[in-house]
Design a protein around this nucleic acid. Structure first.
Lengths: 341, 341
DNA sequence: CTGTCTACTCAAAGCGGTTTGGCAAGATCG
DNA sequence: CGATCTTGCCAAACCGCTTTGAGTAGACAG
């Protein structure tokens, strides 16, 4: 059923029907009522592609999700981020266009989205330390919002980020205050901006206290359960092992916990753990008492906020960039305790 | 840059340029070379919406992901499923149109996708026992593939599913063979088709051996870490607690493991666990030796296969439905052992 | 040298909407 | 009561592409 057929059915012109459904004031209220009612009954909905073409607005936002670096892992925070963003989009009647690409093709995917005009705006996920994508998208003139940020701020752009440096600096301070001198860092890949900031926070705290920063206490790689386990295990086998771990994701922390148990140590007594918690829906960090002491920030809320900002920028292209840096909560759980002397 | 401008630039007609880029045989090879080269250089790409409108093909597949039942959880398998499907789509130059909706609006989302013609086909996720969506989509005439299946088979449709009943029957048999008499089931919501089939497999195995099926040994709900923990804890506190658990997802099993540790019991000795493992990228079930004994089937592979089938059906609407039921592997890990008498 | 074929290329008609610029009919005003 | 506004509707142009059907130039044969 297309507009012409539908309008003939009603004995009206396509123009009037389109206006009636579009909420324009030029049609009589009664006519509008008749039209909307008939549309509901016959299931008429304007063809989205045609409407897009005519208005120039795609009514869609592009997300590119890369399947990670070398492995085939897809970052588990995407699901929650998309859920948050999706809430906002669906209220505004926007679609998500998702492009799942292997790491190398990412830039191509962004370029394609921009040049084929299939989206009105773009969300950039997982910014790298030197991220070619940002300059690229800036060139296209398409509105975009970055979840996280990249250090190079050639021209300012919108982003929503957690204050990762501060979060990890506070977490490290906490462990130092508890008397821990040997602290392992289980981090994400260092090409990721957030991982680098977290490491900087960790190093800054250690250096401020005159504690040596040791490379054998640092792991950087994919944040999987497996890697958390393997890295923690290896560090625990060192002649003088860490008494505490600072971990970049709850999933990795669960891996670390496995290694701790396996070494017949007790979490929160023999070994302390502080982790970052993205508050993923299916992986809550305990109910009343948190399992892990954690720096906490909802990735779902970030998704919502990024979407809001982006839709505003799409609606009004002249708006200045919005930059938000969120403070993460530091919550005390059962996984930290004083260092055993 | 649009086709008209671009073709004027080249001194050719829009038709010829379109044909050259489309790979039609009516243009001279040399002309085609010139055109593609210029397109690359000037960054010309046909506008997707316009092309769609002209050809009638949307070059997009719709996925609807519901944020689960009562809670705000979004199923973590989506990310991996989408990654698998995305591999196939991007090769075929198809987009994913994602609609994230809260549970109630799901049907509306499907109807909308179908009637606005923004997609060429649909993937249905997480079929329920009585699923209205399937009949609805069948009505629209749009090709679709179900990941999983629903019991009502009014008219046959395409699906890819794991043989859940058989998998859980085998797993239960394994535990029974090890001497376990009291086996807890930590399952998903029973309105989900897969959960019901798994329960049926569990019950069938118990009944075949004359073992009583007890309701206090069955939990059905959201498959989160938290629920796995809470349900296992509660069952372990029963006067005569289970000596083994059968769990529907690795995340839930990790929750159960936490409860087991907390009760000062040892996994694989005091309490056995068999779980289903979707092989999510970030949550591997151990490396060489699996942590958990598990029924295993890759959700990513399922995503790939569903996408393949769907694209075939889109290309040729007359194709008969494809129904695949995959056998899951039963792999032996360190979480199962003989029942302590 | 003319007629027929082949190989390219083009103009124009959609695809299904939105939107501009009119045009009648009825309402309002002097 | 005629002139001027509103109000409510419509015809037609346009968004950017694909594709049909027609046309032109050159190759080749007679």
């Amino acid at each position: 059923m297309n507009l012409r057929e539908f309008s003939e059915l009603l004995g009206l012109s396509p123009t009037t029907v389109s206006r009636a459904l579009g909420g324009y004031p030029e049609v009589k209220e009664e006519t509008r009522r008749k039209v909307t009612e008939a549309a509901r009954q016959h299931g008429y909905k304007p063809n989205r592609r045609a409407a897009s073409l005519a208005t120039g607005r795609a009514m869609a936002i592009g997300h590119v999700i890369p399947t990670s670096l070398n492995h085939e892992m897809v970052n588990p925070v995407f699901a929650d981020f998309l859920a948050g963003a999706g809430e906002v989009y669906s209220k505004a009647n926007y679609d998500i266009i998702l492009s799942v690409v292997s790491d190398g093709d990412e830039v191509r995917a962004y370029r394609q989205m921009a040049s084929t005009g299939s989206v009105d705006g773009i969300i950039v996920h997982g910014p790298r330390t030197n991220d070619a994508r940002i300059a690229l998208i800036q060139d296209t003139g398409l509105p975009f919002v970055v979840h996280g940020r990249a250090p190079v701020e050639a021209a300012p752009y919108s982003f929503v980020d957690v204050d990762n440096l501060r979060a990890f600096r506070r977490a490290t301070d906490l462990l130092l205050d508890l008397g821990h001198q040997r602290i392992g860092l289980l981090n994400g890949h260092l090409i990721m901006d957030f991982a680098r900031r977290r490491r900087d926070g960790y190093c800054a705290a250690l250096e401020a206290r005159g504690t040596t920063v040791r490379s054998e206490f640092q792991f950087a790689g994919e944040m999987s359960e497996r890697n958390g386990y393997a890295a923690a295990r290896q560090m625990l086998r060192l002649p003088s092992p860490p008494t505490a771990f600072l971990v970049s994701s709850l999933i990795m922390a669960i891996g670390a916990r496995r290694a701790i148990h396996e070494a017949d140590l007790t979490l929160g007594r023999d070994v302390s753990v502080v982790t970052h918690d993205d508050m993923l829906g299916y992986l809550s960090n305990g109910d009343d008492v948190p399992i892990f002491t954690a720096t906490r920030s909802s990735v779902r809320a970030a998704g919502r906020r990024c979407a809001e900002i982006l839709l505003e920028q799409v609606a009004d292209r002249t708006l200045p960039p919005v930059q938000e840096i969120w403070e993460s909560e530091l919550i005390m759980g059962a996984s930290t305790g004083p260092a055993l002397s």
